[in-house]
């Protein structure tokens, strides 16, 4: 695993919904080494409050050396990040962590909830590189409402994936939760990739276990360094020992963590 620290120029910042932003930066070293499911640690400002870098999964990557990050403004760090302008400089460390295992087995099912959809866009694009026919795969996406979900759905449709949706308020797709959509497609898929709220992933992991379908999950925790030094990002592993999300993850097989 090789990571870089790069001063990155902001190429664009787009407001996707009232509190959701897509940030694109020039990060040629990180972009060239990035694998779907990996993340970056972003220093949102050169100041002591907020002090720590913020972890963001890699949402998009281009051969031109850009990285896309998708985030919701939830606190001090993300509010500062939402206020950057084109040309600003941001300090990034990455790519970090273990990403998704990309197997040729198909069809696959990609399941994302809310901001958890972010790394799945990069995954979906990368999966196409191995002569895949996206129309055979399944993409299930959920969010609070249409405003939040719609722009993200477009990314997958543009790649040729069929997308099913669910929203908490019923404003787009099914009124309800994403795992409800899984039952119908699970018998037909050989592999599931998911990222989203913890309760959603817990249900999906259990459904996959019962159906004996391989399931990879991307976890989110607080972390101070992203490098395996602070040991702050622990979650309980399936064997009773702690695992560190930054180095052993953030992508795990469902059976590797205790739910």
């Amino acid at each position: 695993m090789v990571e870089f620290q790069e001063k990155c120029r902001v190429a664009s910042i787009d407001q996707m919904a009232s509190d959701v932003y897509r940030l694109t930066v020039h990060a040629p070293l990180i972009a060239a080494a990035a694998h779907p499911g990996q993340f970056v640690m972003v220093r949102v400002a050169d100041r002591y409050d907020p002090l720590l870098r913020r972890p963001f999964s890699i949402h998009q990557q281009s051969s031109g050396g850009t990285l896309g990050l998708l985030f919701k403004t939830i606190g001090k760090g993300t509010n500062i990040l939402a206020a950057v302008t084109v040309g600003d400089s941001l300090d990034l460390i990455g790519p970090l962590g273990r990403g998704f295992d990309l197997e040729r087995e198909r069809p696959v099912c990609i399941i994302g909830g809310g901001m958890g959809i972010a790394p799945l866009c990069f995954l979906a694009r990368q999966l196409l590189l191995s002569d895949r026919q996206p129309e055979m795969d399944h993409v299930l996406l959920g969010a609070r409402n249409r405003e939040e979900l719609s722009p993200l759905v477009d990314d997958f449709i543009d790649l040729g994936y069929p997308v099913q949706t669910a929203t908490d308020d019923g404003s787009m797709g099914q009124h309800g939760y994403i795992p409800d959509l899984l039952d119908a497609v699970l018998p037909a898929v050989s592999r599931v990739y998911t990222c989203g709220p913890h309760p959603m992933m817990k249900i999906i992991v259990e459904k996959c276990r019962q159906a004996d379908v391989s399931c990879q999950v991307s976890l989110e925790t607080h972390m101070a360094c992203g490098l395996g030094a602070c040991l702050g990002c622990t979650v309980p592993g399936a064997d009773g020992k702690y695992v560190h999300v930054c180095r052993q993850g953030p992508v795990f097989y469902g059976g590797e963590v205790a739910w």
Binding site: P50, L51, H222, L231, G232, V235, P236, Y242
Partner: peptide, 15 residues
């Protein structure tokens, strides 16, 4: 093994 999570929290100019 260390403590159960959460193990870290950011505070003003510190953690």
């Amino acid at each position: 093994p260390g403590n159960p999570p959460p193990r870290i929290v950011e505070t003003a100019c510190g953690m």
